[in-house]
Amino acid sequence: MSAVFEQIFQVGFLAAIIRIATPLAFATLGEMFSERAGVLNLGIEGIMLLSAMAGFTATSLSGSLWLGVLIAVLTGALMGAMHALFTVALGLSQHVCGIGVTLFSSGLAYFLYRLIFGQQSVPPSIKGFQPVPIPLLSDIPILGPAVFNQFTLVYLAIIAIPLAAFVLYRTPWGLSVRMVGENPRAADSAGVSVIATRFQAVILGGALMGLAGAFLTMAQFNAFTFGVVSGRGWVAIALVVFGRWDPWRSAGAALLFAFVDALQLRMQASGLGHIPYEAFLMLPFIFTIIAMAVMSRNAVAPSALLKPFRREER
């Protein structure tokens, strides 16, 4: 037992949790903004993949990491706009459109990647982001090196959580988002454009999903593979439910998932018996399903989630 305890409080383990949680935090916040405005975005898995590919390609061709991040964010925003076009402007089924966006974006990512880089036995890689220690803070024992000696994108995620909470709860735009997600009819009467607000929220969500994708190929793996997202998008959707559509709780859910994921990685590395590592890869997904089952009973989704808004229909 004490051996397990020691492992958990190793600096490397804590740092791993933070690194795993970062793309999930971006993705979860992105999905949360979209859903708070009433739009489920199942395109998240594909949007993350396409952004990851686009960012990686831009960096690989230009040599600039931040240009890559920018391209990834723009790609995510663009795909968000596409999802909003189908679900908000045309009012089509959010479930099926989301799957369509995921299939389309993943297909496009595979296609363009193969077109640009050809078939190579070893996937091309880039020199990704390097950890940037924050003076003084990184000297704090344990916490310092784990949290304050990280990639810039990690700090960005740490800032993004309170920022998202502030935007959602303390700004007029955040109020509009919550209104169009809870009671679009009332929002419309109050002079809030339901369509415009939903578009903005889904696009912002897409941009955050793009950041998540950028982190995967430009900080975590420094290469693009077809399995680079491998279900993280679906997990983010579950984490939004688990986090009850709240930025703080969603981020907390991302940390909890990251803890389980880091734990299974440790278990893989420790080579428990002769168990194939794939058996451990299942664990975070099973954990997420169970967590959803525990949480969903009292989870209250935004009232207008999944419901398209048409002004003339009463």
Partner: peptide, 19 residues
């Protein structure tokens, strides 16, 4: 348990694949 079937069936795909 009122768990959204889309999300659980998607997550289950990963579980089965790794299994």
């Amino acid at each position: 348990f009122k768990v959204d079937d889309v999300v659980s069936s998607l997550l289950l795909n990963s579980v089965i694949y790794y299994a």
